[in-house]
């Protein structure tokens, strides 16, 4: 690695870390309740305090911003994995219908449990979301065995997404009134309502998966030259593909279980990060995507919370507003590249 590149990578990581720190701070300070900077700092130094400021900071804002950072990171890493797997820059958990089917599975479990009066634990939510994600992943893999064309594959994923969303809507419509409020918020996508227990479960799941993803960085690098070359370099393709699919499903399932479906983070962030670093080396991209996803979601959540405060926007509508232009820009620049 040349010295120039090393400097660039260090600088990029520094930028991301600074942005993350700044956004974490802003998300702590800014909110629908006006709090003084000094009060917030005071509250931060006294965890477990019973004052209003302490409660707002520690019980509402902290879990929310931590989950936004964690889940945003998880989502963009999941997107990066899927893009590598399908060799297509537009693949992502939302586009391929993985988020939507995870959402459907979670909605069904939620309604069932609420109806039976069972308290839902976050692990149950993750597991059901994972099952839902694997189901649509299974369908897509079956189709991809037959269809060689990537664009058809994406269309297939989008269709799965529509079907799952439609079924979720129907289920939500017929659910008991008391459940709907709860479900409605969640199915629109939001980082609100995640408590410390949820953050802990999410953190364990995400960091464990992330560790495994880093172990896949080496074969992913080989896989970027195509499956055949990867195999020729000694990658066990079967194990690698299974690992990649499981991990990307776990990551996006975890996000869906806690925050509902969030669009375009999985496509936009990896592309932005790649353009920033000017490389696609997985060993760098995985941590960078994680940081970048955190930054992106913290930023979007800040806007979702504050733009029309006190009413909140759904996180997906904000990520779409910022994510879609990035995706269009990416498609156009690729078009230009292949034309020129």
């Amino acid at each position: 690695m040349s010295e120039k590149r090393r400097i660039r990578y260090t600088a990029c990581f520094l930028i991301l870390a600074l942005l993350l720190a700044a956004l974490l701070f802003l998300n702590t300070v800014i909110g629908s309740t006006q709090l003084g900077m000094a009060d917030v700092l005071q509250a931060l130094l006294s965890p477990g305090g019973q004052g209003t400021t302490e409660r707002i900071v520690w019980n509402i804002r902290m879990p929310r911003l931590l989950s936004a950072a964690l889940l945003g990171g998880a989502l963009s890493v999941s997107g990066f994995l899927l893009q590598t797997f399908f060799g297509n820059p537009i693949a992502g958990p939302f586009v391929l219908g993985i988020s939507s089917s995870a959402k459907l599975a979670v909605a069904l479990i939620m309604i069932y449990c609420l109806g039976q009066g069972i308290v839902i634990r976050s692990v149950t939510l993750i597991l059901s979301a994972f099952l839902g994600a694997m189901l649509s992943m299974g369908v897509i893999l079956l189709v991809s065995g037959r269809l060689k064309s990537m664009s058809l594959l994406i269309v297939c994923g989008v269709m799965i997404g529509y079907i799952c969303t439609a079924v979720t809507d129907i289920v939500v419509t017929f659910a008991d009134d008391s459940n709907i409020v709860n479900l409605h918020n969640w199915s629109m996508g939001s980082f609100a309502g995640i408590d410390w227990g949820g953050v802990r479960t999410a953190a364990v799941t995400v960091f464990a998966s992330l560790f495994c993803v880093l172990l896949l960085a080496k074969p992913m690098g080989a896989y970027q030259l195509g499956e055949v070359y990867a195999q020729n370099m000694g990658v066990n393709i079967r194990c690698f593909r299974i690992g990649l699919i499981l991990l990307s499903s776990v990551l996006s399932a975890c996000v869906t279980a806690f925050a509902g479906p969030i669009s375009f983070v999985g496509i936009a962030v990896p592309h932005l990060v790649k353009s920033l670093f000017r490389t696609s080396k997985p060993l760098l991209m995985i941590p960078a995507c994680f940081l970048g996803g955190g930054v992106f979601c913290l930023f979007c959540d800040l806007i979702a919370r504050t733009l029309f405060s006190p009413s909140e926007l759904s996180i997906s509508s904000v990520t779409a507003v910022f994510g879609v232009p990035v995706v269009i820009w990416m498609l156009l620049s690729r078009q230009r590249k292949s034309a020129g």
């Binding site: 195509g226 070359y229 020729n232």
Partner: peptide
Amino acid sequence: HLEIARSVSAVLTGRPEPELM
């Protein structure tokens, strides 16, 4: 696969198009 990779390498017909490499 790894043992094979240490004694056989290949140049194949397909043209890989890796991103940003």
